[in-house]
Amino acid sequence: MSENDCPDQPPAHVGFLLIPDFAMLPYVSVIEPLRAANRLSGRTLYRWSHISIDGQPAAASNGVRIQTEFRIGADAHFDYVFVCAGGNPALFADSATLAWLRQIARRGAKIGGVSGGPYILARANLLKGYRFTIHWEHAPAFLEEYPELDLRRSLYEIDRDRLTSGGGTAPLDMMHAIIAREHGTDLAMAVSEWFLQTHVREGTGPQRMPLRARLGIAHAPLLRAISRMEQTVETPVSRDELARVAKVSLRHLERLFRQHLGRSLGEHYLALRLDRARDLVRQSSLSVLEIALACGFTSASHFSRTYRARFGQAPRTERLSETTAKRR
């Protein structure tokens, strides 16, 4: 029991705002540690409720529907509210939901977001002046829209009354830190062991696997070049610069790309830029020209032709198809 833990203290009320198409795993990774903390402590430390935009059951991205007790605007006290989102949070713009989030923040609730949830917190203007994170899939579109905010590429961030996580299983680590802070490290460790979490990660840990593991490549010069490519999608550097970073000749670097990746240096760089562009087409409302410029193309027409050659359809066509599919 922590020094702040009082047996007569009422349970903290945790609200889960479920945005349609929310990701199930990060939601479960927040709520299950609360259940375990109650069970292992032998006390009701936390209670929880679910909120949806219209008060109806909320559907996750896997089709599972969660019954809700409240709709946004409800006059209820929450100590915490976690916004759970997935899909394409860049397109979320429900003004009533954003206003309600600002209202409960003013009332003193701690506000959290998991997976795509931080995107909605930014929409509600609740992240200015805070350190936070978001799932890496949403980061490129987010940075294009909110370049002034302090986005970190970390597993989770706890900055005063803002609690954000990149999603997946990272909320397990975040909840370990929250439970430890409120009820002591012994209970937090017991909760982690309950879920077979043999290693609790620090919030500053990376969201993605190292390049070496992700690509199955152990060649250091090649990894240095690819790392610089991934960092310079918006403003591609020259082949000579990549060779300098790799610390080998350009001819040798080209051979390494062919040997280990089966394509040229230029082909790999272009693939990275087009993959980033596809994320922005699917995850943002940026125009085709804005996406082209954000991925190092000098014109929308050249970008569209190259995109169609890679993915079989123009960016506008793909965006229309995605939007139509989400409305069905």
Rank of each mutant, 00 (worst) to 15 (best):
G116I: 09
S301W: 08
Q9V: 00
G203K: 04
T68E: 03
V237G: 12
C295N: 11
R310P: 04
N4A: 12
R316L: 13
G113Q: 03
R123T: 10
Q231R: 04
Y27G: 10
F303I: 07
T306S: 15
V245H: 12
L34H: 05
T44Q: 15
D21I: 09
L127Y: 06
N88D: 13
T306L: 13
E322Y: 07
T232H: 15
A300Y: 01
F311M: 03
Q259K: 15
V288P: 05
A60N: 09
L172C: 13
V64N: 12
A59Y: 00
L40K: 08
I31G: 02
R319S: 10
P10F: 01
G262A: 07
R228N: 12
R35Y: 10
R212E: 15
L270R: 13
S165D: 04
E230S: 11
D279P: 05
R276I: 09
F142V: 02
A243M: 00
P33E: 00
D173P: 08
G205V: 02
E322I: 14
H268E: 10
F311V: 05
G203Y: 00
D240W: 00
A314D: 11
A93V: 01
L163W: 15
V200Y: 04
T306N: 09
E69D: 15
Q207S: 00
R308W: 00
D54M: 09
V64P: 09
G55H: 14
P10V: 00
T298V: 11
S29Y: 06
T185F: 02
G167S: 06
A23D: 08
T204C: 09
Y130W: 03
F70A: 05
M229W: 02
M1E: 14
L261W: 07
A300K: 08
F82R: 04
R160P: 12
A188R: 03
E148P: 02
S285P: 07
A177I: 05
S2Y: 11
W48S: 15
A190T: 10
E267L: 05
S238V: 13
F70I: 04
F132M: 03
S95G: 11
A60W: 03
E69G: 15
D5F: 10
V30P: 02
G108P: 04
E145S: 12
L45F: 07
T324R: 14
Q207D: 01
G296V: 04
E234G: 14
L256Y: 14
F82Q: 02
V248K: 11
H13M: 09
E254D: 11
V191P: 01
M229D: 04
R310H: 06
E234A: 15
N88M: 07
R102A: 07
R255D: 14
T204L: 03
A243I: 01
T235Q: 13
R65E: 12
S299N: 03
R201H: 05
A23G: 09
V237C: 14
R107T: 07
